[in-house]
Nucleic acid binder design. Sequence first.
RNA 1: GGCCACGUGGCGGAGUGGUUACGCAGCGGAUUGCAAAUCCGCGUACUCCGGUUCAAUUCCGGACGUGGCCUCCA
Length: 486
Amino acid sequence: MTTPQLTLYNTLTRTKERFVPIDPANVRVYVCGPTVYDFAHIGNARPVIVFDVLFRLLRHLYGADHVTYARNITDVDDKINARALRDFPDLPLNEAIRKVTETTEAQFRADARALGCLEPTVEPRATDNIAEMQALIATLIANGHAYVANGEVLFDVKSMPDYGQLSGRNLDDNLAGARIAVEAHKKNPADFVLWKQSADNEPGWDSPWGRGRPGWHIECSAMSERYLWDEIKDRLSPAAHQHPHAFDIHGGGLDLIFPHHENEIAQSRCAHGTSAMANVWMHNGFLQVEGQKMSKSLGNFVTISQLLQTEDFGGRKWPGDVLRLAMLMTHYREPIDFSVKRLEEAETKLRDWQRAAQGATLAEGDGPDASVVKELADDLGFHRASVALEVIAKKANRDGGAAAKHCLAATLRFLGFGLDSVLASEQGADEPPHLAAAIADRLAALNAKDFAKADAIRAELAEQGITLMDSKDETGARQTRWEIKR
RNA sequence: GGCCACGUGGCGGAGUGGUUACGCAGCGGAUUGCAAAUCCGCGUACUCCGGUUCAAUUCCGGACGUGGCCUCCA
């Protein structure tokens, strides 16, 4: 089997391109992670899931030990401060902030796990990288790309001739919008903050520019530099050293293209004097909820944990991998209208696959089917991959489909799906009490041709959400399997 | 106002310059004591208006519509 060529859509060039890693032995990916001030909502779940699929695919194509995936945790931010003051008014600010960020971060990790996502290779926190940010800022000042004004350090966008490449907009276009507040101390209205002063009651770190805190964009420039270049550069190939500081893929939501990613590029390229921060820029599309923009005021704001743990959405709880499939049913760059119906469809599909894969025993090294990998390798064509999966499932359901069954199970595992999350079976440990006795009674009734009694037992179980499925074994004796809706 | 996506059957969702996936739901059949599960089969679409072409859902232009960014945001 030949390894398929990976193709990815690059926002920078607005085309699908063959993916060529700078160093195939060290494929490097950075994705903007959450700002930990509140529960992650289902919109946040999309990039987490999409880039998890990319991570899994890269590990498959290049080897699990040859991919570094960094996803940051932004734990310094004015929204966090506000939340800390609101929720813990009696605590000292730093302690209150830690409470907010620690609980939110733990919740985020739990959510990501429930969605079937692997942990990234590194999950750096902004507050652990303040020194790196300060060093980067100092370099930008020394290079003439940043200046101090009014107690702030600002990036000078005019100092970068090709600023705006990623978003495809130039500074004059932005000015025409006239929605950028003009601040007198800025040389140019589009100049953005690298470091800002903190009041005594705000979190802050000492710096050459006074006690303050970093701007948002500088965090990602500093952390990607540290974890995708500085700390691993000794292992990188000579070819990689031809392109110092640059890494392979940078991802995030569509909304981050401007200004966040644009500004990251400006900072990193100007600090290091390079022509590219990352070679490929990938952005996932947005989602709406039941046809409307998700917002707190509309009351359709749904968090991941609400979906998993409460009955707020559709009157029931949803398994994490159903949410995962609902998210992946649509290509990652297309918009999604998130709805109960969509979740139900995902669940139906997942249940079919899990039924077809039931009974397979997997070994550790069992990998995905080539047809599925091939579709994913074409710009993460998950939907086409799921069609390939359906083909395998059909084979598995036919007589003598043991090989297909095994292949299906291995592929599901590879894609991050459980094998029984929407299916409870006799193999499961959670058999309801008295079920075995009820089934035995019913079989006895059937053998005595007492269909009325047998059907009564079946109806009673159905009310408990248990579905019975009769079949016959090789000898012609009746067998009963069961499933629970959960 | 500027920039960027998108518009396919009841729903989800691929794809293609000519023969029009796939899934769900629906319908019919096989199987079943009856079901369920499974298998087999069937139907309906390419926003609108121009243009290019022997031929467009697919290419070009325009209109309309939806969403996003331009300010914190996945």
